[in-house]
Design a binder for these strands. Structure first.
Lengths: 100, 100
DNA sequence: AAAAGTGCTTTGAATTTCAAAGTAAATGTG
DNA sequence: CACATTTACTTTGAAATTCAAAGCACTTTT
């Protein structure tokens, strides 16, 4: 019996990216600092994972000004939501089917 | 609100190791070749992940002879079972709590 | 105006991943 | 029996990934 680990999406294997997507699934958007605090990450670490997700087309980066300061907010794209749900399905199946 | 991604066990982040553990949770032991086929992996890839799990003390490697050929079988250690369950709990919590 | 803080981005060293090549013993073939 | 091939892994190293420190362009405080 085969266990389909290859259905898991590599983009979501990393804990940070799992966390980011998880948050963006239920929050329409989230800014850099809040995300950083929620996930307890260093700046550089968050930035690189966010960029990785953007490159995959799974999240959208929006840069605007809040008063005089820059504000970067992120939101999951439609593609990202779909891919993440498929990943979770694969994960669930993997953990469920393992004994059949 | 904090999302505890750091409770996820790094040893189980990788899809291959997730698959191996998942299989060893419900099978007392599994041999190299069956595992390799179940997970659709190359030899080297399986070998390195198995070694990684052994280094963490999460699985036990047993080498014996089946007739004249060597047979390597793997089983999850008690520590491994515990760690894996804790990882799954953390995962579940992460995916569930993300909106509260 | 100098110093300190904010909000990110860049960099690069360390770690991880993975498949190709290697090894050693068993087995098949002429 | 000589040999090529297969089996059951292990070793190797190039490529990809991860992550925090340092960098940068501002803004705010003193």
């Amino acid at each position: 019996m085969k266990i389909h680990i290859h259905n898991l999406n590599k983009a979501f294997e990393n804990r940070v990216r799992l966390g980011i997507m998880s948050i963006l699934m239920v929050n329409d958007s989230m800014d850099f600092n809040t995300l950083k605090e929620m996930l307890e990450l260093t700046d550089g670490n968050l930035a690189s994972h966010v960029t990785a997700l953007e490159k995959e087309g799974y999240l959208h980066i929006k840069k605007e000004f809040a008063g005089k300061k820059t504000l970067t907010t992120y939101s999951a794209t439609k593609t990202g939501v779909k891919a993440f749900n498929e990943h979770l399905d694969a994960l669930e199946k993997l953990l469920k089917d393992r004994n059949t």
